[in-house]
Design a protein around this nucleic acid. Structure first.
Lengths: 225, 225
DNA sequence: TATCCAAATGAAAAATTAATCAAAGGAATA
DNA sequence: TATTCCTTTGATTAATTTTTCATTTGGATA
């Protein structure tokens, strides 16, 4: 039984979603409600969820802030519910790691379908805190990495690098950012280190190493695929 | 020019942040330093700031106290810098009105990105985050460019050129102006470079390349539509 | 309209800049 | 101590930027 959390301040929307989900997904999922960001945060700290539906505009702690909070420690799928077609907001949402969004006024059926798809996708993968890109898999809990099913042993820096890339697949990551995040801001050496570790990582990943593309003058990017 | 105040007792962190911000944001923001809560409070009473970075743990007046103090009269964005993952602290931080926080040891790049995003958002400038002309779209945050939905990878100069045109669509931009803005005042070469990059850019944009018109003897202009 | 000149285009070579790679010394770890 | 890993270095390769120049286009003028 999947546990879903809906964080939404509009009681009417809460009710509509609850009705639909509890009917359609009664053998499949269970919807929990939070009336604002703080309540949502509290619930997330209390229990485990498989997916979170987040309204962006809420008094107090808004959807973005809550999303960042969640992303500090979890990769569970997050879907933003956003009023209006504010693409700028969505862009920001993607930057901080949202998985999808849906624009109000939306069709409940569409939302349900989205949720179902995300759950299936993350089933046994992300849900169990597992990162997957292409046929590279990384288990943060055990530090295990497999490529096409066969285990690959990575030294710490390469592992951290791979994890960082997988956590931010699709994004261009500058050498500066990589250095800050993996080496720490007190690191003073040259940024050729990054190149070299990228090289080693690509080699270690075999064919899948090609998923890490170089974006000249800007850094590197892992293909979403 | 945005005015940022950093209140932090650790000289090393102050220095690292100052260095990074004064380099990265030199055309954009100005960082002011305070060594403790009292100094911070004093500065805030003296001048206007657009954003405050607050260390939580400081001798004397701590970050929370200072935040409450600031919130008495101002809603400017406040970002906490907090050691360790002390969630109770953070929760309390949100309650007294902080906008975001970042956990030490943090990535300077991440902090910078956060600050930039908050400044833009609080200034309603976030809309300027997605440029669209015809069916060309450019996302400054991710360097992504799409034409009719399909991604186009542009080399740095071409990207900068396109961005410049999209930011000034409809205007005739002289080669001099383009050189000054993209190549910089110190560039001394010929202005045929512009022509050539225009040529490559048009080619890269396919049919949409025709949106960049040449205005003979005056320069180039991007059609608004 | 024909002619001329100035300006813009396009292709390709040259120069510059960035990324890759291998090797070796140093540091950390077992 | 032995081993593995990290970092630096510099040579090599790749990509991008700039220049050059022949060709084409546009606009003014006779």
């Amino acid at each position: 039984m999947y546990q879903i959390l809906l964080v939404e301040d509009d009681p009417q929307i809460r009710e509509v979603i609850e009705d639909y989900f509890s009917e359609k997904g009664k053998h499949f999922l269970q919807l929990h409600l939070a009336r604002d960001g703080y309540e949502g945060l509290h619930q997330i700290q209390q229990s485990k969820f498989d997916l979170v539906l987040l309204d962006i505009m809420m008094p107090g702690l808004d959807g973005f802030a809550l999303c960042r909070e969640i992303r500090q420690k979890s990769m569970i799928p997050i879907v933003f519910l956003t009023a209006k077609n504010r693409e700028e907001d969505l862009l920001y949402g993607y930057q901080i790691g949202c998985d999808d969004y849906i624009v109000k006024p939306f069709s409940i059926a569409a939302l349900y379908a989205k949720v179902e798809a995300l759950l299936k996708r993350s089933n046994g993968l992300m849900g169990a805190n597992l990162l997957q890109v292409g046929n590279i898999r990384l288990m943060p809990a055990t530090y295990e990495v497999t490529v096409e099913g066969t285990p690959v042993l990575l030294p710490p820096k390469e592992y951290a690098l791979l994890k960082f890339f997988m956590e931010h697949k699709g994004q261009v990551l500058s050498r500066d950012m990589i250095l800050d995040c993996i080496w720490g801001y007190s690191y003073t050496g040259t940024d050729r280190v990054v190149d070299n570790h990228i090289k080693k990582l690509r080699k270690a990943l075999g064919k899948s190493g090609a998923l890490i593309k170089t974006v000249i003058t800007r850094g590197y990017r892992m293909e979403e695929k």
